[in-house]
């Protein structure tokens, strides 16, 4: 091959990459704009749920949760919009963009479910609430890590709720929260975590658990602990 041909080949390689790269940039920009909307929806839901920490809100938990339903509907629409933009089999090429929003919405769905039913949200329920698929093979899905990180965020929020429930005069709720967070902790202890984001978040769980246990302790030594079954 002579020098001229070789020069042409190099020019060709770089031109190909240039066009590939600018297409990728355009797509990333589109993804970013949808993700921004999703994050806004998540923030709105979070803001509404803050009411449960106040006295009048904690008595109206069911209504507070209900009022978030329309926002979850919006989130489902936005995820649908987002998933339409991702080429098949390229979820992980771009998932850094929406990972955070997905975790936050997983957290919010877990919190709403706990407030409504005092149960742990299942992976299926979370996926259905925020409008993503359960399995990778089915399309735009939720990573197991993101679901689990959502649960850990919920534990933090619940430890705060335990404190605020006492302030609001509800001594039953902290007991139930303590039990629930302890179960969650036992569950997470079953996992073999690597040194990654999930592990880092899990390391915070023990502080949340400790805080809830302290609330229970404070109630107990002052004789404020409610009698079982009342």
């Amino acid at each position: 091959m002579d020098a001229h041909e070789s020069a042409e080949r190099i020019a060709e390689v770089f031109a190909d990459f240039q066009s590939y790269f600018s297409k990728e940039q355009d797509l990333r920009e589109e993804i970013r704009s949808t993700v921004r909307e999703l994050e806004q929806t998540a923030r709105e839901i979070h803001a509404v749920l803050q009411k449960v920490h106040q006295k009048d809100g904690s008595e109206n938990v069911v209504n507070v949760c209900k009022s978030t339903e329309s926002n979850f509907e919006t989130a489902r629409k936005q995820f649908k919009e987002l998933s339409a933009k991702i080429p098949e089999n390229q979820y992980y090429r771009f998932n850094d963009h929406w990972k955070y929003a997905l975790q936050k919405l997983s957290f919010l769905s877990a919190l709403v479910t706990y407030l409504k039913t005092e149960k742990l949200v299942s992976r299926e329920e979370t996926a259905a609430m925020i409008g993503v698929k359960l399995r990778q093979a089915e399309g735009f899905h939720m990573d197991l890590d993101d679901y689990l990180i959502g649960l850990l965020q919920m534990a933090s929020e619940l430890s705060r709720l335990a404190v605020n429930s006492v302030t609001a005069g509800d001594f039953h709720r902290p007991m139930r929260i303590a039990k629930f967070v302890a179960e969650l902790d036992a569950g997470f202890r079953l996992l073999n975590l690597k040194n990654d984001a999930l592990r880092k978040r899990f390391d915070g769980l023990k502080y949340d658990l400790k805080k809830v246990e302290e609330v229970v302790y404070d109630l107990s030594i002052r004789g404020l602990k409610p009698v079982e079954g009342t």
Binding site: E118, K119, L120, S122, R123, L144, L148, R176, K179, E183, L184, A186, G187, F188, L190, L191, N192, L193
Partner: peptide
């Protein structure tokens, strides 16, 4: 919540997490 329910939920949570353990591993 009844005591039975609580126990049930407890085993349910640990069952789920056992599955997650397998998937993560």
């Amino acid at each position: 919540m009844l005591a039975e329910d609580v126990d049930q939920q407890k085993s349910h949570i640990s069952q789920c997490f056992q599955e997650y353990q397998k998937e993560l591993d």
